[in-house]
Amino acid sequence: MQKHGLTPDEHRAPERLEQSALNQRRAAVEQFLSVAAPRLDALFALVGLSGFAVLLTDSDGVVLDQRISDADTAAFESWGLCAGANWSEEREGTNGIGTCLTERRRVIIHQGDHFLSRNTDMSCIDAPIYGADGAIIGALDVSSARADQTEAFNRLISAQVAQTARAIEEANFRSTYTPARIIAAGTDSDAATLLAVDGNDLVVGATRAARALFGMAGTGPLTARPAADLLGRDDERTGFERAERAAVMRALARAGGNVSQAARQLGVGRATLYRRMKRLGLAET
């Protein structure tokens, strides 16, 4: 009421973007929508028969994609739970999508928890999704307007929503850093904890949770850092020695342990490779 000038008894229709404006927003996050689509399908397959809609928004709370059964489409569209609708807190007050994005956390906004009285028949369950740059990219929403919806059931659905949001975040990150090697940190966080490591063993990307875990910048491009420095796998060798050892080990692995063949791959003589192997502490295989 104070910040956005809203009143609970407003009965205006939810704001909905023109198709051209919606298409522009979708085009701006095309990769995100592409990797999310099969995961939205899987989530809808679990909850759709119970009268739920599955919605995916951008960081402004505008619905970009939806999964709604044909029988429920008209009802959800009349409530504004459809593609192009703006569910920001600025526009709708407390609601699943807008509050999730504002507070950057999982939320359940059950019926009377909504600010606008016209939304109090709904139950909305949401989880934020962070992009490959660590910034929030959107929200995953599962909504229902069933009168018999219970808070206990909402909590069960919330766990599945969080799991799906994490899967979308992971898939989007992997897609962004396709050429890189992806390392997953073993944490129990709801968020994906992934590092992208390039061919030079430099960390060039990290999810929001990984950035927090390893003390990196919260959002934006990263300054490349050696993976060994972050993961605590350093040893007494210099950087050049580690690189040389890794190159020799890769050549030996490709050659199935055949030193002569590995030497040819590396462009050195067999005797030279033996000397390097001895210096690097590599036994003949």
Rank of each mutant, 00 (worst) to 15 (best):
R118G: 07
D121A: 13
R106S: 10
N119Y: 15
S123A: 14
I97N: 02
C124Q: 09
R104N: 11
I125R: 02
H110R: 13
N119E: 10
D113F: 07
I108Y: 05
N119A: 11
H114P: 11
D126W: 03
R118S: 07
H114I: 11
P128L: 01
A132L: 02
Q111S: 05
H114S: 08
L116A: 08
C100K: 06
S123G: 11
D113P: 07
D121H: 13
I125D: 01
Q111D: 04
D121Y: 09
G112K: 07
A132N: 05
D113R: 11
M122E: 14
L101Y: 06
S117A: 12
P128V: 01
C124L: 06
D126N: 15
C124G: 07
H110W: 15
A132M: 03
G96Y: 04
D126Q: 09
D121M: 08
V107R: 10
I108V: 15
C124K: 04
N119W: 11
I108W: 06
E103S: 08
Q111W: 02
I109W: 06
T99L: 13
D133M: 05
A132Y: 08
G134E: 02
H110F: 15
H110K: 12
A127S: 10
Y130S: 00
P128R: 00
S123Y: 03
D121K: 10
R106F: 06
R118C: 07
G134K: 03
S123H: 03
P128K: 00
C100F: 09
I97S: 04
G131W: 07
H110N: 14
P128I: 01
S117L: 12
I129W: 00
T120P: 04
I109Q: 05
H114W: 10
R118K: 14
